[in-house]
């Protein structure tokens, strides 16, 4: 049996912002491949390049080298028209971190969820309304909320509306950029359960970005660790969390607070930081 074709293939991806002395490398040499049905977590501190990676997948980041293929199409080199067509196909969708900012305050949530289908323009009004209602049911939102505006919903309901908007086009790849970091723990669990259910019922591929190890562990089966724009570790989530290989991952795991022990001892973290600094020094020496 032949190997299934990856949904997402990233090869030697470099992304840089600005020019001249102000130029900043956000990603360098990122290589990654996601198979259908896989759920991959991306973890790293702020500024590590997590969101840039997701934006590059959607063709929104200035790619300077390498390629990003979504279902075989190089999204970094699409013309304006091709990008619109690609968007209308609904193959890849994005869920933003803050649902309040990602939903138009002057649009009812029904209109927000219907919008991708209306842009696509293949269905009539009744079919779109039916699809929206079905999607509302899928994300466990009551139909009575359809005519509400985002400001009239709770944070958790808003994020489920945002997920419904992303899922209404039946995407094959769903990018979630810190989808639960703005939510309380009860709503966080609901969203994570929703994603679990989605995975169980469809062969959707998830790229789940977070700085929270707990959320990553709850949803994904593979985890990528980003540090300073480079992928420093890529492996099964359980292994990355329990037996991290890279010093940065060890520091990340060691710094994660838990209910029972709080953050790792200050001494342990100091040792991990020293270990990371040594690794970076040897890396820099190897490069020169």
């Amino acid at each position: 049996m032949s190997e299934p074709r990856p949904i997402l293939e990233i090869e030697g991806l470099d992304v840089a912002f600005g020019r001249g002395p102000a130029r900043k490398e956000a990603l360098s040499g990122a290589t990654l491949s996601l198979l259908p049905g896989e759920a991959v977590g991306v973890i790293g501190e702020s500024g590590a390049g997590k969101s840039t990676l997701a934006r590059a997948v959607l063709g929104l980041a200035p790619v300077t080298a390498g390629s990003v293929r979504v279902v075989g199409r190089d999204v970094a080199r699409l013309s304006r028209r091709e990008r619109r067509e690609f968007g209308r196909s609904g193959v890849a969708q994005y869920v933003f971190q803050d649902p309040l900012r990602s939903l138009d305050p002057d649009q009812t949530v029904q209109a927000a969820v219907a919008e991708p289908l209306e842009i696509r323009g293949e269905l009539n009004r009744a079919e779109i309304a039916a699809a929206v209602r079905a999607q509302f049911a899928a994300v466990e939102l009551d139909e009575s909320l359809l005519d509400r505006f985002p400001a009239q919903l709770s944070g958790g309901q808003r994020q489920r509306v945002a997920v419904a908007r992303a899922l209404v086009t039946a995407p094959r790849l769903l990018l979630l950029d810190e989808p639960v970091s703005a939510l309380d723990s009860a709503n966080r669990v609901r969203i994570l359960q929703l994603l679990e259910r989605l995975r169980a019922t469809t062969d959707i591929t998830l790229l789940f970005i977070s700085h929270d190890l707990g959320s990553i562990a709850g949803v994904t089966d593979r985890t990528i660790v980003l540090h300073d724009g480079r992928i420093v570790e890529d492996g099964p989530t359980a292994r990355v969390i329990t037996a991290p290989e890279h010093p940065y991952t060890r520091l990340l795991v060691g710094s994660a607070p838990t209910l029972t022990s709080g953050a790792a001892d200050r001494a342990v973290r100091a040792r991990l930081r020293a270990e990371l600094a040594a690794a970076q020094r040897s890396l820099a020496e190897a490069a020169t």
Binding site: R88, S89, Q93, Y94, F96, S102, T169
Partner: peptide, 14 residues
Amino acid sequence: RSQYVEAALLAGAS
């Protein structure tokens, strides 16, 4: 520059 416009652009809006 809002995210909802970005979401619409990602959905292929003109």
